[in-house]
């Protein structure tokens, strides 16, 4: 019989994995927000598209269902190929969305650009809904099941994998934004687009890059989601997206480490509410926390990266 402490630890493991997923999704979202101060509702359905792209790539490689398990080099090759293709396709999708629907909206006041992203989001959602007949699809599972049992607390190899990938992507993005030339240009644009433009920063290119990077991350998250949960459906973007939103706001919207922290916190809150209160109230608890954070600490736990310009 599992002890209360072991149960708590097990739920923490569950929460960390869930949180890593939210964090991955929040990263790209927060990156775009940091630069454009635009809430990109389409982001979460780019994530959903990413899971389908990953599915198609893996199936094209002949990996379908739960029967094909790979090891060693073929596994790494298959996963890397799927990751690269998914990130490329989603990145390009993000750039196209920006170029054709959001660039014309730049400089338009008020909620117009946000409404446009809602429209784009709806289009992506419904195209997939119609294409798949609203069916959930089985996602290939080429990873061998490998559990580590530490005092009744089971950690699965997949969970460790998702932690590592999230960490790598977060640190990578953080370093990219901090150190690379383009990253610096991004931060300059985030601070003051007009000044950045005057200093010779190609703002269009910066924004495109941000959309590419953010959407590619969403794509990666989509693939990982599929590999982890072994299914995908047109609707996965919505509920995961809503929590990723909350994660980004909780950590400090526009703040890369904040998104990571927020994601993990939301994951933990969700699992702990399920364990100690009731699963049915988990959403209410998450969104109540969101509202409380906004009321008492609008900049989020780690503070917003971009100053709250007026």
């Amino acid at each position: 019989m599992i002890t209360p402490i072991e149960l708590f630890a097990q739920q923490a493991v569950n929460g960390l994995s869930l949180g890593a997923m939210y964090a991955l999704l929040a990263l790209g979202f927060t990156l775009v927000y940091g630069i454009l101060e635009l809430i990109n509702f389409a982001h979460f359905n780019v994530f959903m598209i990413g899971s389908f792209v990953g599915l198609i790539v893996l199936q094209a490689l002949g990996i379908a269902g739960q029967s094909v398990v790979l090891h060693g080099a073929p596994l790494i090759f298959a996963l890397l190929l799927a990751l690269i293709v998914t990130m490329l396709v989603c990145g390009i999708l993000g750039v196209l969305i920006e170029r054709f629907t959001l660039r014309p909206m730049r400089g338009v006041r008020g909620p117009m650009a946000m409404i446009t992203t809602i429209g784009v989001s709806y289009i992506l959602y419904n195209v997939v809904l119609l294409a798949t007949n609203a069916q959930a699809l089985n996602f290939p599972d080429p990873l061998a099941t490998q559990d580590f049992d530490i005092h009744h607390v089971v950690i699965r190899a997949k969970q460790i994998l998702i932690w590592i990938i999230s960490l790598i992507l977060m640190v990578g993005l953080d370093q990219f934004v901090r150190r690379s030339r383009l990253g610096k240009a991004m931060r300059a644009t985030a601070q003051d687009a007009e000044a950045a433009r005057m200093m010779g920063v190609d703002v269009d290119r910066v924004v495109s890059t941000a959309f590419f990077a953010g959407s590619a991350l969403a794509g990666a998250a989509g693939l990982i989601f599929g590999l982890y949960y072994n299914f995908t459906q047109y609707s996965i973007g919505y509920s995961a997206g809503l929590r990723a939103f909350t994660a980004a706001v909780l950590g400090g919207i526009g703040n890369v480490p904040g998104a990571m922290l927020g994601g993990i916190l939301i994951g933990l809150i969700e699992t702990m509410s399920s364990q100690y209160i009731a699963t049915k109230w988990a959403d209410v608890i998450i969104f109540s926390i969101l509202i409380l954070v906004l009321v008492f600490k609008p900049a989020g736990l780690l503070g917003a990266l971009a100053p709250n310009r007026s």
Partner: peptide, 9 residues
């Protein structure tokens, strides 16, 4: 922007 998220919640 925050209002949009909060109202969504």
């Amino acid at each position: 922007d925050y209002l949009a998220i909060v109202t969504l919640g």
